[in-house]
């Protein structure tokens, strides 16, 4: 999978918040086999600290995708992105502009505006968006080369609320990497996203808040692999008529 001229092997991207401990986080990253982890700049490092924590994340060797989680305006998101670039030394930014505090739904108007500014400044922008096709087009116009549609509201674990919307996105943007971001609750959700032809899934809470985060990280990795293979293998179409799976012609020869 190619994201902004970088070849990424694993199609699972993992968030780093809410784990019971940094030790479990590191073990979960390891078990997931992911190559990219998202980190939130906003609350945890607002004062330039938590160094022990970030050292540990960086020690996993995963590539850091900083995010603008919790930003509610263009200005806030742009400022956070610039700080992230300084702090983590990367142009990659997961752009989140929240429009509604209860559902954490993206404010797509401000998202497009912020994406335009950041792409203009040389950022590689990963926009957290809805499954709206027109918004997707605007984000590509703004300079984004990846789209990250939601499956369901952040942290809700509801899975894919609009499979048809995601299917339409895949059809409409056949050559743009699509990463389902947010809403994944169980391995079956991740698998389904991959079967729909998404290029990757990004999740956090489903692993971090599982009873055994490390085991869940492994399960998600397996689900992503299974779903992708299922998509690549060109699955059969469902049909109404039953078709026997063993031959029915001929008579049994009972010698």
């Amino acid at each position: 999978m190619r994201l902004y001229d970088t070849e990424i092997a694993s199609r699972l991207l993992l968030g780093t918040a809410q784990y019971p401990s940094p030790a479990i986080l590191a073990a979960a990253i390891d078990a997931s086999g992911c190559d990219v982890v998202t980190v939130s700049l906003r609350r945890e490092t607002a004062d330039g600290s938590g160094a022990g924590f970030w050292d540990r994340v960086q020690a996993t060797g995963a590539r850091i995708l900083p995010n603008t989680a919790g930003c509610h305006s263009v200005q806030e998101a742009v400022t956070t992105a610039r700080m992230a670039r300084d702090l983590f030394g990367t142009d990659w930014i997961k752009l989140e502009v929240i429009g509604h505090s209860d559902s954490l739904q993206p404010d797509v108007f401000q998202l497009v505006e912020a994406a335009g500014i950041l792409c203009g400044e040389g950022f590689s922008v990963f926009p957290y968006t809805t499954d709206d096709l027109v918004v997707g087009e605007r984000l590509l116009d703004a300079g984004c080369q990846v789209l990250m549609p939601w499956g369901a509201p952040i942290g809700s674990g509801q899975g894919l609320r609009n499979r048809d919307g995601l299917r339409a996105m895949r059809a409409h943007f056949p050559d743009v990497p699509l990463i389902v971001d947010a809403g994944i609750g169980r391995p079956s959700d991740a698998c389904m996203a991959m079967e729909l032809g998404m290029d990757a899934v990004l999740l956090n809470t489903a692993v971090a808040r599982a009873g055994d985060p490390v085991m869940m990280a492994r399960a998600m990795a397996q689900a992503v692999l299974a779903g992708r293979s299922g998509f690549d293998a060109d699955p059969m179409e469902p049909r109404d008529m039953a078709v026997p799976s063993t031959p029915v012609l001929g008579l049994a020869e009972l010698a």
């Binding site: 609350r43 945890e44 490092t45 607002a46 004062d47 600290s49 938590g50 160094a51 924590f53």
Partner: peptide
């Protein structure tokens, strides 16, 4: 619970 060394 915040990963931070700030004592402000």
């Amino acid at each position: 619970m915040i990963e931070s060394s700030s004592t402000r």
